[in-house]
């Protein structure tokens, strides 16, 4: 089975670990526990009409993902899932900034953006028009690690684009 490395990138507290937990184990914990270093998980993804593939998901600590150490974590990745928190507009800028930086070492990685915490949409700072604009550049998914909305779709989109 083909295996691809996928890195989660985004500011701290946006829900990267929660998205991975939802995707890999279908679990959710509301408690925020900051990630130090990296946690590696994997999951097979079924693709309609094609061979399934295995995603090895690197849940990299928020921020500092691209200081010297972070570059090490990114090497060899073929997919990036940028994560922003809809309730913190600044985290969207962080995610896009991380994308620009990672493009230097990963020019060919497939990329998607997950704007997380859709369950708190009433408190979102990110405007729908902003995401409509971003969609011209990259696939955008509104996700909720709590409810699971959009999570499978975001990973599936990356997997589909990794498949030959």
């Amino acid at each position: 089975m083909r295996t691809h490395k996928l890195c989660m990138l985004g500011d701290f507290g946006v829900g990267k670990t929660s998205l991975v937990a939802r995707f890999v184990r279908s679990t959710f914990s509301a408690k925020y526990l900051t990630t130090v270093g990296v946690k590696v998980d994997s999951k097979e993804v079924a693709l309609p009409g094609r061979e399934p593939l295995k995603l090895v998901v690197w849940d990299i600590a928020g921020r500092g993902a691209l200081d010297g150490v972070g570059e090490n974590y990114l090497r060899g990745a073929s997919a990036l899932l940028l994560v922003a928190d809809g309730t913190r507009e600044a985290s969207l800028a962080s995610a896009l900034n991380l994308l620009m930086q990672s493009r230097r070492s990963l020019p060919n990685a497939v990329v998607a953006l997950a704007v997380n915490k859709l369950d708190l949409v009433d408190r979102w700072e990110v405007a729908p028009a902003t995401l409509a604009e971003l969609r011209n550049t990259l696939p955008v998914f509104e996700t909720s690690a709590l409810s699971g909305d959009g999570v499978e779709a975001a990973f599936a989109d990356l997997a589909a684009r990794l498949a030959p």
């Binding site: 369950d119 949409v121 009433d122 028009a129 995401l131 409509a132 955008v140 509104e142 409810s147 909305d149």
Partner: peptide, 12 residues
């Protein structure tokens, strides 16, 4: 998924 979330997604 709340009505507001659906509205947001449709608009976006």
């Amino acid at each position: 998924l709340s009505g507001n979330a659906a509205v947001f997604q449709l608009r976006s």
